[in-house]
Design a protein around this nucleic acid. Structure first.
Lengths: 222, 222
DNA sequence: GAAGAACATTATTCAACGATAACATCATCA
DNA sequence: TGATGATGTTATCGTTGAATAATGTTCTTC
């Protein structure tokens, strides 16, 4: 996850930069509007934090230019101006969130996460859960209730994909694309076969089934 | 563009409602958490404005429940609590914007527009509704009021087509083309037969029928 | 009000889909 | 190089969803 900071106050910039890095983001920093615009246009960021009063090119113009060029990176506006008019202007110009200085870092972080969450569904957790089932993506351990479940790599990937879309129905085509990286129909029933084994490990012996087949459509976990 | 307001303070609610209506939005209002949740789950909104301190079901729980149910309507949190902790909690729970009371209407309006602007670049709707009926295309769940309805794939496709054209009469030929992919007349009564089943599941037991036959022309849902 | 058309309802039949298990292949590592 | 484990393949079987067709109902028209 990459974040762009455009801020001329070195103290604030460094404070935010370190905080976000500690939270696991990759952070780029520009200390003036022109450099910020250049970075935003040539690189690809998941969110940006932009000050309004900037040397060379002010924040308003920066955001406006970005939006004109159809660059839709979410923008958190960080400004010392606290008037309602400024806040409204910020949002109307193309900003997604307006934070006034001084601000709490935890709030900025929450904003960043909220915007990223909305932009690509969900944030990047290390643990995924559905009901009694939980999987740790780091240790690659899977538990149903307290019982540990051993999964083979493919099964793990399949389960991960299901859980990331928990509640939503995913088609076999989708599954093949994301879990097998097939962009064509291999004319076999790999998915069914593997799904069968996954079920065996996850649902067998339990009354409450988690994996459901939606005939003619795909599968859901819930 | 439809907006949901969940707010128990009648003064504020009415103020916001009128303002948003004047700005061209269709506004629904619930004055407690339970009703708000119900509306949010059965209707489809482009944005919602939710108070935190609510009777029956508080705002936190409301938002949490929505997100659990994969209802991703943007949420503006409207709260009297101004502490950083509350703001962070609001964003982490699933809110998209945190506004503190008292607030300027123009700022709220700008938020609403910003959220809609961002949401619109994205995909087509995931939920379709007609009156008490709502279908979630992601989870493939269909509800009439609070009652869940199980549909077979064809029935689901048929209902989807009807709702996408809700209010308009669709001919059997149209239906065959779009739901069955037939470009000729199969000389059978497939459509009637399936429509019958669909009705059985959707309208049976309810006084208010949703699916109507227009003799000699086709069908409508409304 | 009778006849016929348009539509509703239901049971039966059939095919497609998916579950499953046995088998084959491939890779890895001692 | 052979053993082990992971993965894909194939074949078979059961289930379920959907079309058909036969029958019943309602509406329309003369």
């Amino acid at each position: 996850m990459r974040i762009l900071i455009v801020e001329d106050d070195q103290k604030i910039a460094s404070f935010v930069k370190h905080g976000l890095r500690a939270a696991g983001f990759a952070v780029d920093h520009a200390d003036n509007g022109e450099d910020g615009l250049h970075l935003a246009m040539t690189e690809s960021y998941d969110t940006s934090v932009i000050d309004i009063m900037l040397p060379k090119l002010d924040g308003w113009s920066l955001i406006e230019t970005l939006r004109e060029k159809k660059i839709n990176t979410p923008v958190i506006i960080l400004s010392a101006k606290r008037s309602v008019d400024d806040r409204v202007k910020g949002l109307q110009t193309g900003g997604d969130y307006y934070l006034t200085k001084p601000f709490a870092f935890s709030e900025l972080l929450a904003c960043v996460q909220a915007l990223i969450r909305r932009a690509n569904g969900e944030s990047e957790p290390t643990r995924l859960t559905v009901g009694p089932l939980s999987m740790n993506l780091l240790t690659r351990e899977v538990f149903r209730a307290d019982r540990k479940i051993d999964l083979q790599p493919r099964e793990f990937a399949l389960l991960e994909y299901l859980i990331r879309n928990s509640g939503k129905v995913v088609s076999k085509t989708m599954i093949m694309e994301h879990v097998w990286d097939y962009n064509f129909d291999p004319q076999t029933n790999v998915v069914e076969a593997r799904m069968c084994r996954l079920r065996d490990k996850i649902d067998r012996g339990f009354t409450k089934k988690l994996i459901h087949t939606i005939r003619g459509v795909g599968y859901v976990i819930k």
